[in-house]
Amino acid sequence: MKRLEQGERHTVSLILNGVPRTGRADNRTLLSDFLRHELGATGTHVGCEHGVCGACTVRIDGAAARACLTLAVQAEGRRVDTVEGLAGKDGELNDLQQAFRRNHALQCGFCTPGILMSCSDFLERVPGPTEAQVRDMLSGHLCRCTGYTNIVKAVLETAAERQARREEEKHA
C-alpha cells in the first residue's frame, strides 16, 4: 500500500465529469474541499463533515459516496461525477433535474446536489423503485426545507418516465 508522509503535497489527477483534471492536495485534504476549492467545482456542498447530512454526495466510479469522508488522494485516477455534470452541454437540465424543478423538489437548494447524485446512482441500480425504496434511499440525506414529499415525487416521476422510454425503445 502506498504510504503518504505527513505534510507532503500531492498531485491528484482524476476525471471530473468526464474531463481530466489535476490539482494539489495534502494527504489530509478532503475530497469535498479539493473539489470545491482546488478544482472550483462549488456545486458540491458541505453540510456536516461527518457523513450524516449527505449534501456532499458525489459519484466515485459511479457509486454515490460522501466527499467529506473521502480524502482527495483516494480519488486519484478515478472517475468523479458531481452535480455540474448532470445537465447537457448547452445547460439543458436532464430529466431528473427537470422533475425536481417541475415538482418544486428544492427550496434553498443546498442539499440538492447531493440528493441528485444519490438519485442518479440509485435510479441506475433500481430502475423501478417503490415509494418506500425511494424514501429509504433519501434517508441518507437531510433536507430542512421541503419536507421531502416533492423530492419523492420527482424521483418516482423520473423513474416512471425512464421506464416508459425503455418500453418505447423496446417496441421501436
Binding site: Q97, F100, G109
Partner: peptide, 21 residues
C-alpha cells in the same frame, strides 16, 4: 399561479451562489 421557480436552473446545476462559493 403555481409557476416554476426562476431560481432552480442555477441551483440544480451546481451554479448556486452561496457565500462559500
Amino acid at each position: 399561479r403555481p409557476l416554476e421557480r426562476v431560481e432552480d436552473a442555477a441551483l440544480l446545476t451546481g451554479r448556486g451562489r452561496y457565500a462559500d462559493d
